[in-house]
Amino acid sequence: MSPLGTQQLLEARSAEEAREMVQAAAEAGTALRIRGHASRAWLHPIDARPDCSELRLGGLRGMRWIDAGDRTCRVQAGTSLAELDEALAEAELMLPFWDGSAGSVAGAFLGGGPSLFGAAWGMPRDQVLGARWILPDAREVRSGTRVVKSVAGYDLTRLLLGSRGRLAACTELTLRLRPRPRQWAFLQAPETTPEQRLGSCLAVRLPGGSSAGQDLVLWSDPLAVPAAVRAEPLAPQELEDAVLARLREALRPQRGWEPSGVHADEDALLRDLNQGLSVFSVARSTGWPRADSNWLPAVQAVFAGSAIPFGG
C-alpha cells in the first residue's frame, strides 16, 4: 500500500539510481518528497504534501570506510543505525547518537529531532563532517569535508541537515566518531506519568548540557539516563556511585529529580528510550510549536534550481 497521499513510491538502491529517479521526476514535473526508511512516517502527515511522489533512499546501504586513526567514517545514507553501530563496534568506535530504533543514518540527522546525547555532545549534526547530495534538478553536490575542522566556504552541511529533506536528498555522510565506552550503565529515573515525562524530557533536554568528559557521559533522557564509562571497568558499586554522583550534578537544576538507581539492563533501557521518544514525538505531531523560517522558500529556490523543491 502506498503511503499517505503518495502518487508513487520510488525506491533507489544506489546513488546513481536515485539521481536518475530525481531527474525523471524533474523532467516530468513531478514533486518528490525524500524518505530514508520512512520509519517515522507517522510523524509526517503535518508536513506531507499529498501530491508528492515519495523517493526512498533506504536502499543506499553500507559503510564506505572507517578510519580508526582519524575517528571518522563514510557511510551510505540509507544504512540503518543498527548496521552502522555494529560496524563501528568492531572498530571500538561509536556515533554518539542512538535510539536503538530502526531508521536510516541520514534520517537520524535530517529528521530534525534533538539527540538523546544532546546534553553531552550538542546537536546530532555536530557529528557530520560532510555529505553528498542530489538536488531537486538532479545536480549532485558535496558539502563539507572529511576533516574534523574546516571553515572554508559557507556551512552548507548544517543548512542542508536542518532542512528535514526539503532542500536536497542525502546519499552519503562523513561522520566524526567517538571512542566506544568499554562499560555502560543505565540509570532509571523515577516513575512518572506520560505528561510528566514529556515535561521532564524538555526540562532535562533543553539545558544544553553536561560536559563531554570522555569517561562518564550522560544522556539526559526523561526516562532513563545511561552513562557510559570508558577505561577499565569499575566494580559495580564504584560504578553506581560514580554515575549517581554525576547524575545528581547534571539534574541538580531540575527540581524534583533524584535518580533512583542504576540498572544495567540494556534492553529495558532501549524500551524506555523508545517510549520516551514516542511521547515526545506524538506531542510534536499533534501540534508541537514549530515556526518554519520565512526564508525556506528562498533557500529552497536556490537548491531546486528550475525544478520543484522537495516536499516535506
Binding site: 529531532g113 571553515v151 548544517r158
Partner: peptide, 21 residues
Amino acid sequence: TWGGPHALSDDLDLRGFACGS
C-alpha cells in the same frame, strides 16, 4: 533571531549557516 536556547534543531539551520559566514 535564528535558533535559540532550546536547540530543538527543528528549523532551517540559519544559525549554523551564519556561523563561519
